[in-house]
């Protein structure tokens, strides 16, 4: 059991994480991607366990399991047009489950400043590097606003499949307008403070802790290499 240290855990090199997740996404979503799905799933579960997010570690295999049952077994047990459609959808969607599972690790564990530093080292032009890093910071803000709006709608009795079906556009309007207004307001102080502290300026920024390739990253590389080899050599269970 790892003992929580006083200094913040360094975690993986953001560059390694970004390469991993993009690589994973491309491979899993490619035409031959199904072959890699079980192994990428293992990787996603391992990363979730590594950051001690037990819920994600449990829900990923659960979601993939449901897709697998619906996609591969349902049409065998009960063949008809409807199950066939469901099955086709699930065969496609199972890839998303796995790719999102790996992507979630990067989104959750990478801080905006780390991401910006990593993108700078790669000489990604300033507009892209700054915007992507800031987006990482805005996600929890906008997510919280969206949840709060949904809460408020629930208390006013404005959420429900009935209402959505009867007045779909009106329901969407009632969610979108307050959500955008509240998000813009919430982002204002954050933007003002960040810009005054030089974010996004034309100066050349530095990093207090430049990303460094360390032992955990080496472990990640080895694990990924092993899983990839396994995916290419072992008989593919999902195809």
């Amino acid at each position: 059991m790892p003992v929580p240290s006083l200094r913040p855990r360094r975690g993986l090199d953001p560059r390694a994480k970004i390469l991993l997740v993009i690589g994973c996404s491309i491979v899993v979503m490619s035409p031959a991607g199904l072959r890699f799905v079980p192994f990428a799933l293992l990787l996603a579960i391992g990363l979730a366990l590594g950051e001690r997010d037990w819920r994600r570690a449990a829900s990923l295999p659960a979601a993939a399991g449901v897709m697998w049952v619906l996609g591969w077994w349902l049409p065998l047990w009960w063949p008809n047009a409807l199950t066939a459609v469901v099955s086709l959808a699930c065969v496609y969607l199972i890839r998303f489950v796995v790719a999102i599972g790996v992507g979630a690790h990067v989104i959750v564990t990478t801080s905006p400043t780390q991401l910006a530093a990593a993108l700078r080292i790669w000489r990604i032009p300033r507009p892209f590097a700054v915007t992507l890093a800031v987006m990482l910071r805005f996600f929890p803000v906008v997510g919280a606003e969206a949840n709060a709006v949904l809460d408020a709608m629930r208390l006013r009795g404005l959420v429900g499949a009935g209402g959505l079906l009867r007045h779909p556009v009106l329901s969407v309007e009632r969610f979108t307008v307050p959500m955008i207004a509240a998000s813009l307001r919430a982002s204002e102080d954050l933007s003002a403070s960040a810009i005054l502290r030089g974010l996004g300026s034309r100066r050349k920024p530095t990093a207090m802790q430049p990303p460094r390739f360390a032992t955990p990253d080496l472990v990640l590389v080895l694990v990924t290499a092993t899983l990839t080899t396994a995916a290419l050599t072992l008989p593919a269970p999902l195809s």
Partner: peptide, 24 residues
């Protein structure tokens, strides 16, 4: 609370100096 850009005190205090390009 609404103006913090980072998650920890260390990163937050370093934030402006990093952006202004102070030597590490």
């Amino acid at each position: 609370r609404r103006q913090f850009f980072t998650e920890t005190a260390r990163e937050e205090i370093a934030f402006a100096m990093e952006n202004f390009g102070f030597p590490p």
